[in-house]
C-alpha cells in the first residue's frame, strides 16, 4: 500500500517509491490501486533506483498562474530503468536545452531531488514531483 501522499513524502526525502506486482513482477509508479501493467491487486511497496532515460521534455516560457517566478523551467518525462515512466522536472540550463533538444532525448538521467510547488487555492495543498539530472 502506497498513497499518493506517501509517494510525495518519499520524493521529498530523496526516494522514488513505487509498487511491485506479485502477479507479473512489474513496477507501478506513481502508485495506483492496481498494477499499471497487468491490473493485479497484490502490490508491495518498493523503492526505484531513480535512474532512467529522458523520454521527452519541454521548456515552459508561458506558465500557469502560480509559476510566473520560475520560467523558464523544464518539465520532463523519464522512463525509469524499472519500467514505468514518471513526470518530473529536469535540472538543466534552459537555453542549452533549447539548443540541444534532440541530442538530449534518450540521455541517462537520475533523480537528484524533489521539487515542491507550494500550491494554490485549487490544489489541495503543496505537491511534489521528482527532479532529474543528466548523468552522461
Amino acid at each position: 500500500m502506497l498513497t499518493l501522499s506517501e509517494y510525495e513524502e518519499g520524493l521529498r526525502s530523496g526516494k522514488l517509491l513505487g509498487l511491485r506486482c506479485a502477479s507479473c513482477g512489474g513496477v507501478t509508479c506513481h502508485p495506483m490501486p492496481v498494477c499499471q501493467w497487468c491490473g493485479g491487486r497484490s502490490l508491495e511497496r518498493t523503492k526505484l533506483s531513480g535512474a532512467g532515460e529522458l523520454t521527452t521534455f519541454t521548456v515552459i516560457r508561458v506558465p500557469s498562474e502560480g509559476f510566473e517566478g520560475e520560467v523558464p523551467y523544464i518539465p520532463c518525462l523519464v522512463k525509469t530503468e524499472e519500467g514505468p515512466c514518471v513526470v518530473g522536472r529536469l535540472d538543466y540550463d534552459a537555453e542549452r536545452a533549447t539548443q540541444a533538444a534532440q541530442e538530449l532525448l534518450g540521455k541517462r538521467v537520475r533523480m537528484s531531488g524533489a521539487y515542491t510547488y507550494k500550491g494554490d487555492k485549487f490544489s489541495g495543498g503543496a505537491h511534489s514531483c521528482p527532479v532529474f539530472e543528466v548523468t552522461e
Partner: peptide, 19 residues
C-alpha cells in the same frame, strides 16, 4: 497529483510530443 507540481501546461504537453 503528478503533472501539477511539474508545472505542465498544454503547450508544454504538445511541445513534449513534438520532440
Amino acid at each position: 497529483p503528478t503533472e501539477g507540481p511539474a508545472g505542465l501546461t498544454f503547450p508544454g504537453v504538445f511541445g513534449m510530443a513534438a520532440l
